[in-house]
């Protein structure tokens, strides 16, 4: 089956546009919480892996990475969306105030997905668990954060987080 050259040219141009659109959408999706979100700080502990596809990064574990659903709630399914309500303490850090499978009506909350099923104690991923850095910097960061640290996160109104920076405890 042969298409004429003109149609192929249009198709190729459309494909290049599609690729550009994908990159711009990815960029927009990454930048949107940074521009519009509320800044919050959460306690963080790093671990250091390397991904074949994604380069070096420090894997981060938050206080809110493991949460418990209330007794009246059912156990979530794997990858089901979980909402964690957040509240600020006296030090300015945010902590978990409540967990639910439905979107809270008000207040500040962060959206994640359940990693384990059949239990109300859930490991949650928020999509902010990787801090990319060159290998040496990732290792330095791991050393600096041994005593703990704080992640600076921007959070949109619908609970989508974006990782801005990590600061070591002094």
């Amino acid at each position: 089956m042969k298409l004429d050259n003109k149609k192929i040219m249009y198709g190729l141009i459309a494909t290049i546009a599609l690729q550009l659109a994908v990159l711009i959408m990815e960029y927009g999706n990454a930048v949107y919480p940074l521009l519009t979100g509320t800044e919050i700080k959460i306690k963080v502990v790093p671990v250091d892996p390397r991904s074949l596809f994604r380069g070096n990064y420090a894997r981060l574990n938050y206080d809110i990475s493991r949460v418990s659903l209330p007794e009246e709630s059912r156990a979530p399914r794997v990858n089901e969306v979980i909402y964690v309500k957040l509240k600020q303490d006296r030090d300015g850090l945010y902590f978990e105030e409540g967990v639910s499978l439905s979107k809270p009506d008000s207040g500040l909350f962060i959206k994640g997905r359940a990693r384990h099923a059949h239990s109300r104690d859930v490991q949650v991923r928020y999509g902010i668990e990787a801090f990319f850095a060159p290998k040496e910097k990732a290792l330095d960061l791991e050393r600096e954060l041994r005593a703990g640290g704080v992640a600076i996160i921007k959070l949109t109104k619908n609970g989508k987080p974006a990782l801005l920076d990590i600061v070591a405890n002094k």
Binding site: V22, L23, E26, Y27, N29, A30, V31, L34, F53, R54, G55, Y57, R125, G127, I128, E129, A130, F131, F132, A162, L163
Partner: peptide, 12 residues
């Protein structure tokens, strides 16, 4: 695609 994810620490 991978590098944009790196620049903005996207792990989603």
């Amino acid at each position: 695609i991978m590098l944009i994810a790196q620049i903005y620490h996207i792990d989603e």
